[in-house]
Design a protein around this nucleic acid. Structure first.
Lengths: 132, 132
DNA sequence: ATTGCACACGTTATAGCATAACGCAATTGA
DNA sequence: TCAATTGCGTTATGCTATAACGTGTGCAAT
């Protein structure tokens, strides 16, 4: 799947996320886009919905925030399950993939006849710098 | 670590979760306990905080809900990372552990010198019954 | 016995996250 | 042309979570 041309609002939201140092909440994005005419949360959420669908943005469930995908150019849906390490001190997010983890999880759910749709793996802790 | 004697509020909240068919939100728990004198969200959240600490309740980050641990009697902190499969149709929650997954994830973070504190693995999808 | 501390609890208020419902405008394809 | 789709803006609302303050109780140290 290729990413379609982004609309104006989608581009604005995506740019904010790309330039950000770490994950942002929808309301933080909203604040950053007030000067560009954004007024209501829905403008952000609707753009995010599409960006998530296109695979160029990820949602971090455990902190109710969003990040641009770490793989510019491609989309992430083809990489299998995406995992994140999130620094609770500085907000640094590291994104990674591990096929063996995917296999184990998918093997388990297959054993239960469970049909997976969306998987979340998030490791909260301290990054090297903050742990020192 | 052994679970200390629960207080009245903690017991009430835990009982509600144990008897529930699936995960419950804090506000749903609140509603179920109105007859027992609960009036405010904090009464629920404070009890949940302790129950999470004791390892007898889990928080499902992706759906902002809580479930009683599937291992009555013992606490879950000793089992390594806990993973969940959550049916988006009927709310069924299956809890499981996979040491190989733990090892892979912990090996990865160790390579990054990241210090993990709390890990979330949640697979949303459809259970066997609902997928049929 | 009294003082000081830790802890659970109750209440009010507020902050933070997310969506429902309405209507309008532009685009597309039959 | 007409209907369907999609994006957009606005208002209102609902759901999730915590801050801040005060009360009461049990218990240990002096």
């Amino acid at each position: 799947m290729t990413t379609p041309q982004l609309t104006k609002n989608q581009s604005l939201v995506f740019d904010v996320l790309e330039k950000a140092e770490g994950p942002l909440s929808a309301y933080t994005i909203l604040d950053k886009l007030r000067d560009h005419g954004f007024r209501a949360p829905l403008q952000v959420y609707r753009a995010l919905e599409k960006l998530l669908e296109y695979g160029v943005v990820h949602r971090l469930e455990s902190i109710n925030s969003f990040v641009a995908c770490a793989h510019p150019g491609e989309n992430c849906h083809s990489h299998g399950i995406v995992a994140f390490a999130i620094c609770e001190s500085c907000g640094l997010v590291m994104e990674f993939h591990d096929h063996e983890v995917d296999h184990r999880l998918m093997a388990w759910v297959r054993g239960q006849k469970f049909k997976p749709e969306k998987t979340t793996i998030e490791i909260r802790g301290l990054c090297e710098t903050c742990a020192a």
